[in-house]
Nucleic acid binder design. Structure first.
Lengths: 256, 256
DNA sequence: GCAGCTTTTCAACAGTTGTTGAATTAGAAG
DNA sequence: CTTCTAATTCAACAACTGTTGAAAAGCTGC
């Protein structure tokens, strides 16, 4: 795990805000909050979460610069200053949104890969199984019924496709997991060159990114035949599609 | 061809700006400029073009809201007011940047498709040939040596992946061309359902979008083994990859 | 060199932005 | 009830935003 972000460290003038205090005292507030329960003390934390929820949705739709703190506060029915109090700078809020769900998501995908690894014998899982483990956990938006997941994944798509944000935020957050999957694919596709493997992953990542962005373009293009928010249909088509692509590029078909 | 954008039609208060005049008088300025040559009168048009060039690059990297008119003017070594004079509102400048190269690009890709259609017999071109015609013209950035093309394509990627802009700008600009290619693919893949065809196109479009975005992510992920700005390598891998995916989803392999 | 344009700059505007210090509220602990 | 602390709001700031009207500069045709 990488160290927490150093953004705006040297500032923290007087440590009067919660964000400032957190840098110094770890998770003092959050811990106290969890202990306090939820009867009426919990509403404070509820406002904090509402800020994250609204920021998540707005950042995903309009990008970092397309959203103002006042829009977020307004959506969360909260004063503007509260966002600064809880998270510090706008950039820190952005990072907080991005990091909030990343650990859970990474673990879900990691476990999915572990599962197909265990189910497969010594030969290891096939290409389809690996790709399925890579994609299916992303349906947790539909499974959990939490709309926030849909917004979060759209935010990841925004970041991954952005030259500016992609470079700074994707690697430290997802490289470990991605390399796990590429390692598995290297085993499933013996003889494949790393160059070919990475280009194939690039293709899959791009298709996935556009899916997660949920732009509604395929809806318009297909006259409503397809729906960009139907992740299940998307993955149903993506898994065999990508598997065939990997096999075509990365060598001969062993073990159908 | 769709009608020109109606954005900010009803405004145009007094028509004192060039942008206002253009709405009324068509391309009065531009036409006069082309006639005037380039010795010294051409420098006026040169500033206009520089604004478009810088806007193109900055919009592609930071998005619409991530760029200010002053940044654009500064990059073009021009006063802020000049952008408004030439293009009107910021949104009109954004549209002008997006539309500047679209006709040329669409025709290049259309002709590439026509060419493989003529070269193929009555059976029509194969999947690989169609996809190649779809992708290769996008290398014109390298061919022409005009860096602007690279920025423009990154801008298209930004727009295509954006829930907000994608819906408004992609369809009217690219649907005609895309449907041409899908029609060709429908012939090359007899028996394929439209649903499958559109999902396959969605996959290809996503991979292409991430390629055009040129985020440098694959460079970091592969430790420099692959370069995201190497479009030729990207298409070399994409064409067979996508062709295999289309065939896997859209039915049996006829005519290898 | 002067009149008539187009192009370009200057200067300023009203509105919005992120941020912060002080004041207010609420809940817990004593 | 009092005290303490965390959560929340209020009010205000300086900086920046897109936009525009007026002035200046450039160029063309006379």
């Amino acid at each position: 795990m990488p160290a927490p972000t150093k953004a705006s460290d040297a500032k923290a003038k007087k440590g009067s805000t919660a964000a400032g205090k957190r840098k110094a005292a770890g998770k003092s507030k959050a811990a106290a909050k969890r202990k306090a329960g939820n009867s009426k003390a919990g509403r404070g934390s509820a406002k904090r979460d509402r800020i994250l929820d609204v920021a998540e949705q707005l950042f995903a739709e309009h990008g970092y610069d397309g959203v103002t703190l006042r829009q977020i506060a307004s959506g969360a029915k909260v004063d503007v200053a509260l966002a600064s109090y809880h998270f510090g700078k706008k950039l820190d809020l952005f990072n907080a949104v991005f990091e909030r769900r990343s650990a859970y998501l990474n673990q879900a995908r990691h476990e999915a890969l572990q599962k197909v690894r265990e189910e497969a014998g010594a030969a290891g899982p096939g290409v389809e199984q690996i790709i399925e483990a890579f994609l299916r956990p992303l349906e947790l938006a539909q499974e959990t019924g939490d709309e926030g997941w849909r917004h979060y994944l759209a935010l990841v798509a925004y970041i991954n496709n952005s030259p500016y944000w992609g470079r700074r935020m994707m690697s430290k957050m997802f490289d470990n997991l991605v390399n796990e999957f590429i390692d598995a694919l290297r085993v499933a596709l013996p003889g494949a060159s790393d160059t070919d493997l990475y280009w194939c992953y690039h293709n899959m990542s791009g298709a996935l990114t556009l899916t997660l962005a949920d732009t509604g373009r395929i809806d318009a293009l297909s006259n409503g035949l397809c729906s960009s928010s139907d992740f299940e249909a998307a993955y149903d088509h993506m898994i065999p599609f990508m598997a065939a692509g990997f096999r075509r590029i990365c060598g001969v078909d062993f073990a159908a």
